[in-house]
């Protein structure tokens, strides 16, 4: 015992020393680890920071509209709430809502742009929604496996087409076809832009809807089939209702995308700031207005700020739409997956 202790004792300092360096090294490693983890976490914040920065910096350029007073002699160029939503009066013709920011008396009425955006977006959804949802039902419920393997990637291919190419197609090819087929007076119009926009939206609605449909637990289908229902009855009466919120979310997300989509409408809509209800008239959308006019404006001018205000509107709107859509999808998934467990 004693000799053993004695034998151990002399080596003790050595072990502590070794132990010490090991401890330092371990502490060092731990510190490095913590720094790395901090760095990684910091980078992970980037997505949040970027969203925040987008809001701040787009908002920052628009905000001075609230208090910026025009220079003396330029009072008529001021941007007021009245200016942004009220109609322009004319001595020799009916008053109307006018977007003409480059003018002796600039008119910044946003109404025509909002009408234009809604028109193209609604057409896009009406066009894309049914097609995408039906295709999603076919792909997930009715089609044999080999067909699904063709349909899905094909529609994903559509998603890979850059929007400038869709815009080009609508401008050069689709517009002429529509005009000839329907005998339209105006070649570039809301219908043309809306259909082209629909092409951009189909993959989004399809993907989300298909996802929602496949998340419906197998047990639902099996139960329905066991009760004697056939495939399509099961699809319509059991699977579809269960996935409906998800499909709706897909439509909502598609709507968000359509509102913000720029190049397609810029090239295909004719860009006339009208407020008429007809789909065969030209329209000017919020996003296309920014794209068409931002290159020209003087930094800090009222026109420049109004364009950023449009950016804020687009950002806040799509942000709200996407948030709702996402939460919806997640909750649905949780519910259905919870049901499966």
């Amino acid at each position: 015992m004693d000799s053993q202790t004695a034998g151990v004792l002399p080596t003790l300092p050595a072990t502590t020393a070794r132990h010490g360096t090991a401890a330092t090294r371990r502490r060092f490693t731990r510190m490095v680890e913590r720094i790395i983890e901090g760095g990684v976490k910091l980078t992970a914040m980037s997505a949040i920071v970027v969203i925040f920065l987008i809001f701040v910096f787009v908002g920052k350029e628009a905000l001075p509209l609230l208090w910026q007073h025009p220079e003396p002699g330029l009072e008529h160029e001021a941007v007021t709430l009245d200016n942004l939503i009220g109609p322009t009066q004319y001595p020799d013709r009916p008053s109307r809502f006018v977007w003409q920011p480059v003018s002796n008396v600039p008119k910044y009425n946003l109404l025509p742009l909002i009408v234009g955006t809604l028109k193209t977006t609604v057409i896009a959804i009406l066009f894309a929604g049914p097609l995408a949802i039906l295709a999603a039902i076919l792909s997930s419920e009715l089609a044999p496996r080999w067909l699904r393997e063709i349909v899905k990637p094909t529609i994903e291919l559509l998603a890979g087409i850059p929007s400038v190419v869709l815009g080009f197609f609508a401008l050069i090819v689709l517009a002429s076809w529509l005009q000839q087929m329907l005998g339209l007076r105006i070649r570039l119009n809301a219908l043309n832009a809306g259909i082209a926009l629909g092409l951009a939206v189909i993959p989004i609605i399809f993907t989300v809807a298909e996802d929602a449909l496949t998340t419906v637990p197998k047990s639902y289908r099996e139960a329905s089939l066991a009760l004697g229902a056939n495939r399509w009855e099961t699809a319509i009466k059991v699977v579809l209702p269960a996935a409906l919120p998800g499909i709706f979310a897909g439509v909502v997300l598609g709507f968000g995308r359509a509102v913000g989509e720029t190049m397609v409408v810029l090239m295909a809509s004719g860009n006339a700031a009208t407020t008429t209800p007809w789909v065969t008239d030209s329209v000017r959308t919020l996003s296309a207005t920014v794209a068409a006019e931002l290159g020209e404006v003087v930094f800090g001018s009222p026109h420049y700020r109004v364009l950023f205000l449009i950016g804020v509107i687009l950002f806040v709107f799509t942000f709200a739409v996407n948030l709702c859509g996402d939460l919806y999808v997640q909750r649905l998934k949780q519910r259905l997956e919870g049901g499966r467990a």
Binding site: V98, P112, I186, N271, A273, T274, S282
Partner: peptide, 11 residues
């Protein structure tokens, strides 16, 4: 210096 009709397509 009057305003364009809104139906004018801007190209």
């Amino acid at each position: 210096n009057d305003d364009y009709d809104p139906s004018a397509q801007t190209l």
